[in-house]
Amino acid sequence: MNKSAIVSIAMLLVAAPATAVFAHHSAAQFDFQSPVNITGIVKEARFSNPHARIILQVTDDKRGTRDIEFEGHSRNNMIRQGLMPDMMAVGDTITIRIAPMRTGEDGGYVTALITKDGKAIGNITRAD
């Protein structure tokens, strides 16, 4: 083997290429720099792979009452963030922190669950 011809890339910290390989979708649609809190009633909470799906019934002055679907990490990574399915039981009123859609539409990417005393469970900074 001609070593001089070898293209060599050192990877001492590999999280970045890992995301390049395993990112399940484009994260460009979500604005992780502008998190907002959303409160609503859980209509559905599916902890699944490759993504979690949370549907909340949300009411606000701007758009009234409607069901909004949010995306989340894979089930495996939700649990690693401390986010367990029983924290989002159907019928519960919960507050989640999301990376909103850049378009301003309803929806977003779940980055944390906010407890009643204001604590954040989870600190998700990018889509998985």
Binding site: P17, A18, T19, V21, F22, H25, S26, P50, N76, N77
Partner: peptide
């Protein structure tokens, strides 16, 4: 887009499966 193998539950395959492992 959301069009990735993983988004369709398909594994990365070598060498991506190995090089990308660790976060999972």
């Amino acid at each position: 887009t959301n069009y990735t193998p993983g988004g369709y539950c398909v594994g990365g395959g070598m060498p991506g499966s190995m090089l990308g492992s660790g976060g999972y």
